[in-house]
């Protein structure tokens, strides 16, 4: 039995009338990449920033590296590294200056040249922050979060708003950190990100953890439902398809129908019958194993992203 490096128990937080967290609990083991997956407004940033000591919780117990983020002050800050949801630095600070300055704040710190090299910022070392691209800024934020060799790394939506190629670059970096057995708490609203990077995932929605486990376990929990994607020769109303046997839900986007079914064979049979009766035809059909998206859909009746 190992003691979890992050332990969150029944965390609550409100902003005025908005209840952002309604009793969030989970724990993260050392060396694990843990994901908080949920749609915008689910409470991911609130959770992470309470763990970073940036926001006070209203209630619940929080421990990071055995310390209370609210009361442990600098001893706590020495142990953690973080990429905030949006990092801001002065426009006229040079890449190298920012990194060296932050490194100097910690008693234990890495050599900054190595970090610049590793994050592909060597040629940009003398560039102003304002001259960097979005991807470069994010790599600098990652480099800055590692200057103190943190025991725990918090990454709040590290790839949000980046284009796919840059996103893959960041994935590679995070996978590398994962191989080094770094403990990472990552938040995301991208399914692929959670499935690809995380050892365990907590799915959060409206301030609650609604599912919790390894991506594989979670998907098996949703094994009862499979995803059916189909294209039709002529459009059909969603409600009609939703009424077919075994169908849990159905949504149409740009001529693509996405259905979830608990009994695939029956669904297919009744679909074919229905289309025949309408004089319509199938233009394409795909049946896929469930993803975390489907888990979310099954649990909430909503899609993660719209």
């Amino acid at each position: 039995m190992t003691v979890p490096i992050i332990d969150v128990h029944n965390l609550t937080k409100s902003y005025g009338a908005v209840q952002a967290l309604r009793g969030v609990s989970f724990s993260v083991d050392e060396g694990e990449v843990f994901g908080l997956l949920g749609p915008n407004g689910a409470g991911k940033t609130s959770t992470v920033e309470i763990l970073e000591g940036l926001r006070p919780p209203d209630g619940g117990l929080v421990s990071v590296c055995g310390l209370d983020p609210q009361t442990s002050g600098n001893a706590f800050k020495q142990e953690i590294g973080a990429v905030l949801q949006s990092t801001a630095l002065p426009d006229k600070i040079r890449v190298n200056e920012a990194l060296t300055m932050f490194a100097s704040f910690y008693t234990r710190h890495r050599e900054t040249d190595g970090l610049l090299k590793r994050f592909g910022l060597e040629e940009k070392r003398n560039a102003f922050y304002s001259q960097l691209s979005g991807g470069q800024k994010q790599r600098l934020a990652l480099a800055m979060s590692l200057v103190n060799e943190p025991r725990v790394l918090f990454l709040d939506e590290p790839t949000a708003g980046l284009d796919p190629q840059v996103r893959r670059e960041i994935y590679d970096i995070i996978e590398e950190l994962k191989h080094e057995k770094k403990t990472i708490l990552l938040t995301t609203h991208y399914i692929e990100e959670a499935e690809r990077l995380c050892d365990r995932v907590a799915i959060v929605d409206q301030g609650r953890v609604i599912a919790y486990g390894t991506p594989r376990d979670l998907k098996q929990r949703a094994a009862g439902t499979s995803r059916i994607e189909l294209r039709l020769a002529r459009p059909e109303p969603e409600e009609a398809l939703r009424g077919l046997e075994g169908v849990a839900d159905c949504r149409a986007t740009d001529g693509l129908y996405l259905m979830h079914s608990t009994r695939v064979p029956q669904t297919i049979v009744s679909l074919v019958k229905y289309l025949e009766a309408q004089g319509n035809e199938l233009a394409g059909l795909e049946i896929a194993a469930p993803s975390l998206e489907d888990v979310f859909l099954e649990l909430t009746g909503r899609r993660l992203r719209d």
Partner: peptide
């Protein structure tokens, strides 16, 4: 300006008082 632009909170994560 640092506070307004969210620059200060980056310093807050580090052991800077």
């Amino acid at each position: 300006t640092f506070r307004e632009q969210g620059i200060l909170r980056r310093f807050r994560i580090a052991p800077v008082g």
